[in-house]
Amino acid sequence: MLEFDRLEIRQDDFALTAHVSIPRGAHLAIIGPSGAGKSTFLAALSGFVDPAAGRIVWDGTRIDGLAPAERPVATLFQDNNLFPHLTAARNVGLGLRPNGRMSARDRVEVEAILSAVGLPGMGDRKPGQLSGGQQSRVALARAVLQDRPILALDEPFAALGPALKAEMIDLLHGIATRRGLTVLMVTHEPADALRLGGQTLVVAGGAVTGPFETGPLLADPPAGLRDYLG
């Protein structure tokens, strides 16, 4: 269970409150109008924004206040997910060994996860030599290898085409289901939310609400969301 307990985030004249509970293993989309605070909310979970009040609790343990690396959260950002000067394998390996020193066994594991995301034998390439979709797969592989129970994604596939994006979400869904990961994915596409298959948090009007079942929510959106969805 991931709980946001009367969480308040303030930045200058921006304010957001969150009081929601998310069951373990849930796949949640986070949608809402641009500028409502989707990314900020996620950053509070990942540890890059300090909340002004409230608590974040995972399985009974308070995690706000911990350094990003100490939290049970693996994060994929909008961009800069891969170090351009390191090969795909070394980038992925960082998920396993943040100091970059991999053993032979680690290498096998990295190769395995690269195969699992559909990039067998591509470990020696640098990000610049990979397509956008392939880069996303490498980043996802690394996030999975970090072996954290929560996966926080901040529109990491936004730059991909619809087909590719659908493919990535399916891949994410499959991996997360097999491993029992709790997924929170920011998106601005209702289709993505549907595809992730599950529930949705709405960030609008200065508050995080939900989770709602995605299908009914999109069929009959509340007022704050309706304008955004159009």
Binding site: F48, N80, N81, P98, N99
Partner: peptide
């Protein structure tokens, strides 16, 4: 890159 490095838990030396 500091966000990524932090989220990965890379130490100072790494």
């Amino acid at each position: 890159w500091s966000r990524l490095a932090q989220s990965l838990g890379m130490g100072g030396w790494a």
